[in-house]
Design a protein around this nucleic acid. Structure first.
Lengths: 323, 323
DNA sequence: CTGAAAGCGCTAACAT
DNA sequence: ATGTTAGCGCTTTCAG
């Protein structure tokens, strides 16, 4: 920058004005400075600029993994761009320590705030940062031990949709395989399923299989649902990974049992039969997260809000197999 | 930091030493400073630190989209972490202007370098940054107009693998549908396919269909391959998106024609029959990119290298259908 | 409308 | 082993 000023024969401040599009610079002078900038290939140092000005215009996204397909992140990115914010994403790997690392790294970079997909437990550490002005929005799962704006899917409603759809085809013996109940979404979805099954007067025992997403565990759950005196005629899965593992476990039997999966995915329509799913409102979740984020930035002391985004049943075939 | 120094009753420099793990600080003093840090919830300002020290330890990754599944990005991230580098990813959306924006933004943040998945044309603008010390590594496609270290898949070898596999089952009338030839990988793969088909003495006319990845275009290409006097008995697709579009176009006929797709994907084994693919060496590509990056950083004037990573045929079913 | 000086939070280079 | 001073590249006062 000092080189630019010298080349154009002006003071530093004047170069700064041109770089920031300040109108109070004479036209010819501005033009001369711009030429000097181009000539020298000058790029302002974002760090120095932020350091001095205080603002960053950057929002950190702590998501499970930046290398995985992540429709909500896409929506966050697009919404943010629309309002002039830059999104920088980092991976948490669903690991508490990694999450903390990512969040701390974001704090050290003095980002305006973070959007986080929280891991299991203990987000108390966020409180200190929030107190010192960090805007925090959680999505997919609530943060624990600290009050922050949150965007959630209607997990219970989604399970009810899936269940009602199967029940409407005449199924009564419907099983559930899903994520560990230590995880918020796993807990919500399993609970909603139990409620639904009880609601039609069916006994619960052995019909609900929450647990870790491991191929063996899922295969065993499937076996247990099929080996009953009265085998299940339909299954609901609690998330994408469970659905995929179950389809693998079913092997050639895929298509013989009715199935509705939680979470939509790009290739669900390529399966034969197509997979009926409960899709989450990814775009709306992302959009809402940015909205909450901006409100929080604008009014740090405002009331903490939680928004629930509805799910949608997508009919493709597996959910329409009769009992 | 000044608060910490005051609270602990020491000079700024001493706090800095503790923060940076400098051993030349008395144990009790260090302990007292650490307590003050915890007490005040102090987090060093990464920007100021970088500004002063010159290093950043950060590498920018300009990839197609941060919200898409991207196995190479995962490998880059992991390899980088292993050597103490932080990866910050940004989206290019396969748009030249967006790519430039992303790269410029990385330069303004004074990252040590960038790893880029280049768009079609014109990377001359990178030259100025390279001259001023930016380390640049391209992957998947070469950058145009500048000499940078590059990691590529063995596109030609991959197509040869696919072709040879089908030819070994007795196929001779093999068609190709792939990406636009304006894109490097599309060009390489189509060229390799033409060479292979000519190599077994088959005429080329109407057998090779490069073009944009649009459902209608792919469906039309399929029709044209089937409507021949002697219809094709096998098809090779040029990339993931083409493969998916072709499977959609085939509909219930999927499994009646032999098929090998370029690019592996997570759900390829769930199709019935399973999809035979040519998989790229994602992990090795990522690992190599980081390696080249570090060499470049260590020796900015060293010779520019291009590394080609082999592909691998994964047999799952569609490639083993007879003529 | 333009310029000089101060300082954002930190670390490098010297003292001591 | 610890403290002092200067300055990274920029923007923000405040004078001209």
């Amino acid at each position: 920058m000092v080189d630019v000023a010298r080349e154009a024969g002006v003071a530093l401040r004047t170069v700064s004005r041109v770089v920031n599009g300040d109108a109070t610079v004479g036209d010819q002078l501005a033009e001369r400075i711009r030429r000097a900038i181009d000539h020298l290939g000058y790029q302002p140092d974002e760090r120095a600029r932020q350091l001095r000005s205080g603002r960053t215009g950057t929002i950190g996204a702590a998501v499970r993994h930046i290398a995985d397909a992540h429709p909500v992140l896409r929506a966050i990115d697009e919404s943010a761009r629309g309002v002039g914010l830059t999104v920088v994403a980092m991976s948490t790997e669903d690991d508490e320590e990694r999450e903390r690392d990512a969040v701390m790294s974001m704090c050290r970079r003095r980002m305006d705030g973070i959007i986080i997909e929280p891991i299991a437990d203990g987000h108390q550490y966020l409180q200190a940062e929030i107190d010192s002005g960090l805007a925090v929005v959680a999505f997919d799962r609530p943060a624990t031990g600290v009050a922050v704006d949150t965007v959630l899917s209607d997990n219970r409603g989604g399970i009810q949709q899936a269940f009602a759809h199967l029940a409407a085809q005449g199924h009564r013996r419907i099983g559930y395989i899903g994520d560990d109940e230590r995880i918020y979404t796993g807990r919500e979805r399993a609970a909603a399923f139990r409620e639904a099954l009880s609601g039609i007067g069916e006994p619960l025992d052995g019909m609900v299989h929450p647990g870790p997403i491991e191929q063996e565990r899922i295969a065993a759950a499937l076996e247990s649902l099929r080996r009953r005196a009265e085998p299940v005629t339909a299954i609901v899965t609690g998330n994408f990974n469970t659905t995929v593992a179950l389809i693998r476990a079913l092997g050639p039997d895929f298509g013989s049992t009715a199935l509705v999966g939680f979470d939509d995915f790009g290739l669900a329509d390529l399966l034969r039969p197509g997979l009926t799913v409960v899709a989450q409102g990814d775009v709306e979740i992302g959009r809402t997260a940015i909205e909450l984020f901006r409100s929080r930035l604008a009014e740090p002391g405002g009331p903490v809000r939680t928004v629930t985004v509805p799910t949608r049943l997508i009919v493709r075939g597996t959910g329409e197999i009769g009992p």
